[in-house]
Design a protein around this nucleic acid. Structure first.
Length: 575
RNA sequence: UGCCGAAUGGUGUAACGGUAGCACGACUGCCUCUGGAGCAGUCUGUCAUGGUUCGAAUCCAUGUUCGGCAGCCA
């Protein structure tokens, strides 16, 4: 089923993508359908350059392009690799891009292409352009070309090579292709208008010489087409109707149209520009993400703190959450800054509905229940998901010695602290109400354990269980606990706009030193012993977690925190 | 100071000449064996100044602010 969002069966994902509300791009497509502008066809494309991993901003584009194809009858969306610059592209990236697009939930069917598939046709079009007197071979050096180009408010100068004859241009271009000239020695340029107020129309370069192998065409070519030239023609060759790209290409549109108007091409797609996604507390440019990877500031492209699709996936974010997020942020021409809280909300919303609840103590403190019989073990019934009755229940072992969260006890409690403190009672989730009788400390005054008593009549589900206490805390039976490492992730940067050029500071100086907190010796309830990475859990009162797909092993569990739970106590404390 | 584009609450968006709405967020309260979830409510907005009109976020004019463009990158 091409172009329809599909669930990942292995991950147990449900629910199709939300129907995105309309937006100005969809309005244009609908209007074109109404007037029959493209014969009623809708063909879009997602055209990444394979020079880096996809990120959440690409997800916006993927959802837009594949989404528009999906909500129009017979609509198609192509995946096309814009691989016209072999010096920075790599197959590693073409593989990861396919995996990521598929994972986000879309299928291009048979429609996967490469701009490099069209190198032959593109060359022929260039010859055609030369014959029309609309392109010429130029010998200016890069520096000279910059000088001749002028400035935004200063018209450029015409190249001395601009008026070469068609024959000479044909000959030179053929020899460029044949490898007779050195890298950078010559370019093929469009002959448009050096005085144009639009710099992109000042005889832009169409082809450059690069004697390097291409990841697909090998050594077949030593000249490679530029983006502006290759993109519009690739769109036309593929019969694209709507070529959707980001705002910075708006000024390129006249060139896009010029090339298609001058040449005899199969069709003339319409370029439409929308605002790329900016997310607070992160960076989104491939260059900067590459830098983080190369300088080992993160563990790789799939570091769970990265805004890459691979990073989000490894962290445990679901494709549904990403699609919902993309549907919610909308599509406009306004270049804004989306609050990362909106992404976090989409993640929580999805996981709340589906994640199994379990109990896990991340920072344990031992509690001895002094009036509970030694050696006694009770299997207590716990609800797997209060949002989904069909998830059923499970048994959790309870015994005399348990662990509770260090944060759930305070020797000297502040106001509104509803948890455990000397003399106070709390409910142990699914178990008994306990009372803190005494605090045991070591020689250094560090708390080593708590002595508590249980109220035997307060057992969950029991006859007198109805007694209310203010707080309920989670716990894990010491004798039954499974050990694990957990990794708590936080925002990668400390400021909303790390790349905002604030005081000329480098974005890396805003890295959050606490974006990863690794906790060893966490105590999990035994049902987690065989947790598969596909399963996502809510560690009750803490957040959503999943076993790390790379590092977690049956004998050495490692859990990633996907996102924390909303925490109104933390909020209260920060007041 | 050239060209292109954009401005609606703290944030993201809707309203297509006719009641400025939704979501996130924040803040109350209710509920709760998760300080989660849920429920109820509150908060904050049309960049400015003119004009057209019975009526303007929407149309016009001027201005302001912000973003993009000077790779043989995409």
């Amino acid at each position: 089923m091409p172009n329809s969002p599909s669930a990942d069966p292995n991950a147990g994902e449900g629910a199709a993508a939300p129907q995105a509300a309309s937006d100005f791009v969809r309005d244009i497509v609908a209007e074109d359908n109404r007037t029959g502008k493209h014969g009623g066809r809708v063909v879009t494309r997602f055209p990444p350059e394979p020079n880096g991993y996809l990120h959440i901003g690409h997800a916006k584009s993927i959802c837009l392009n594949f989404g528009i194809a999906a909500d129009n009858k017979g609509g198609i969306c192509h995946l096309r690799f814009d691989d016209t610059n072999p010096t920075r592209e790599d197959v590693e990236y073409v593989d990861s891009i396919q995996e990521d697009v598929r994972w986000v939930g879309f299928d291009w069917g048979k429609n996967m292409f490469y701009a490099s598939d069209y190198f032959g046709k593109l060359y022929d079009f260039a010859v055609q352009l030369i014959k029309l007197g609309k392109a010429y071979v130029c010998d200016l050096t890069p520096d000279e070309m910059i000088a001749y180009r002028g400035a935004p408010s200063v018209p450029g100068k015409e190249s001395p090579y601009r008026n070469r004859s068609v024959e000479e241009n044909l000959d030179l271009f053929a020899r460029m292709r044949a490898g007779e000239f050195a890298d950078g020695a010559k370019t093929l340029r469009a002959k448009i208008d050096m005085a144009s107020p639009n710099i992109h129309m000042r005889d832009p370069a169409l082809y450059r010489i690069r004697k390097v192998d291409h990841h697909r065409t090998g050594s077949q070519w030593c000249i490679y087409p530029m983006y502006d030239y290759a993109h519009c023609l690739s769109d036309s060759i593929e019969g694209i109707t709507h070529s959707i790209c980001t705002l910075e290409f708006e000024v390129h549109r006249p060139l896009y149209d010029w090339i298609l108007d001058e040449l005899k091409t199969p069709c003339h797609p319409q370029q439409i520009e929308f605002a790329r996604l900016n997310l607070s507390y992160t960076v989104m440019s491939k260059r900067k993400l590459l830098q983080l990877v190369e300088e080992s500031l993160v563990s790789g492209w799939d570091d769970p703190r990265m805004p890459t699709i691979a990073g989000l996936r490894r962290r445990g974010v679901t494709p549904e959450a990403i699609r919902h997020f993309c549907a919610r942020i909308g599509v406009t021409k306004y270049n804004g800054m989306t609050d990362i809280a909106l992404l976090e909300h989409s993640i929580r919303e999805d996981l709340n509905r589906r994640a199994l609840r379990v109990m896990a103590v991340l920072k344990p403190i031992k509690v001895v229940l002094t009036n509970y019989p030694e050696g006694k073990v009770e299997d207590l019934e716990a609800v797997n998901n209060p949002e989904d009755a069909s998830a059923g229940t499970r048994k959790v072992p309870f015994s005399r010695v348990i662990y509770i969260e260090r944060d759930d006890f305070m020797e000297v409690p502040p106001k509104k602290f509803f948890r455990l403190f000397p003399g106070n009672e709390v409910r142990l989730r699914y178990a008994y109400i306990i009372k803190c009788e005494s605090v045991v400390k070591d020689a250094n005054g560090q708390i080593t354990e708590l002595h508590c008593t249980v109220d035997p009549d307060s057992k969950s589900g029991g006859p007198t269980a109805g007694r209310k206490v203010k707080g309920t805390i989670h716990w894990v039976s010491a004798a039954h606990a499974v050990e694990a490492e957990t990794r708590l992730y936080d925002r990668l940067f400390t400021v909303e706009e790390p790349d905002g050029g604030k005081e000329g500071r480098d974005f890396k100086s805003f890295l959050n030193p606490n974006s990863l907190e690794t906790l060893a010796g966490c105590k999990l309830e035994p049902s987690l012993a065989n947790a598969a990475p596909e399963s996502r859990y809510q560690f009750e009162r803490l957040g959503y977690f999943r076993a790390d797909p790379k590092d977690s092993k049956p004998n050495k569990l490692v859990f990633n925190r996907i996102v924390s739970l909303r925490d109104s106590w933390a909020k209260e404390q920060s007041k």
